[in-house]
Amino acid sequence: MIKIVESSNEADTDADRVNPRTRRVREAVLSVAVEVLVEHGAHEVTAARIAEQADVARTTVYRHWPDQRSLLLATIDALTTPHRRTESVGSLAEDVRVALVQLRSRITTHDVRSVFGALATHAAHDEAFSDAQRRFIEQLTQPTRDVLNASQQRGALQADVDCDLEARLLTGPILHQHLAWHDTVTDSVLDLVVRRWLTTHDDP
């Protein structure tokens, strides 16, 4: 289940942040916008459609998001769930595999392809979408960075290892398999990624 969270938006006002009714309306609109995005694509995230499905006036949508660009950015940010630190469960190999299994679950449970496609369409021409794309990918891969940082802190991973870079190297093949090739990320794929990575990062 996707959890909707408040995301900062330049159209917000101080009153919006303290008015409970305004916040509830805003959350309801974003919840509908998320459903439309993942079910029908970015081109359907319009003020007219969202207002109709959320049963609010179109002016209510425009008050928070004056154009489709700002509405779509807010919708994408609403998909980002609050991150909870991923705890270590065992050896370096076990921790890495658990993190990749979690990644596989997240990208197959939610329609990540639709979101990523919407971001990719706009990111090349709009810095705000490029930043949103980066935040979205970082949120997906954060658990892998968590286990690498924890392994490094307990001495299971060399101190000079760049955990951010290694997390990208580990998660990159999984994301590419799912997003680019539209192939199933099987257990054998996960095991292969972990084995190859461990050849250069075995427990010291």
Rank of each mutant, 00 (worst) to 15 (best):
P173N: 05
H176M: 07
Q102L: 11
A28Y: 00
T75K: 10
V36E: 00
V115D: 02
A99L: 02
H64A: 05
R17I: 09
I76W: 03
A47G: 06
R63Y: 03
Q53W: 07
P173E: 01
T199Q: 12
T109G: 14
G41I: 00
T141L: 02
S31M: 03
E27S: 06
V112S: 13
T81W: 06
P143M: 00
V193K: 07
L100Q: 11
Q177D: 04
S8E: 09
R113M: 11
R84I: 08
H110L: 13
E127L: 15
L72C: 06
G155E: 05
A93D: 09
Y62V: 11
D14Y: 14
T22K: 09
G90W: 14
V61L: 03
E127I: 15
H110K: 15
H201V: 10
D187A: 11
I76K: 02
P82I: 05
E6I: 01
T109M: 12
V45Y: 02
P82E: 09
T109Y: 06
E166W: 12
D95S: 10
R85P: 15
E138W: 09
L30G: 01
V185W: 02
T22S: 04
R58M: 02
I174D: 01
T108C: 07
R58I: 05
S151E: 04
L73W: 04
A156N: 11
A167L: 12
V98F: 00
V185I: 05
D183T: 08
D131G: 12
L192M: 11
V189Y: 05
T184L: 08
V5Y: 01
G172M: 09
V147H: 00
T80C: 05
I137N: 00
T13S: 05
A54V: 11
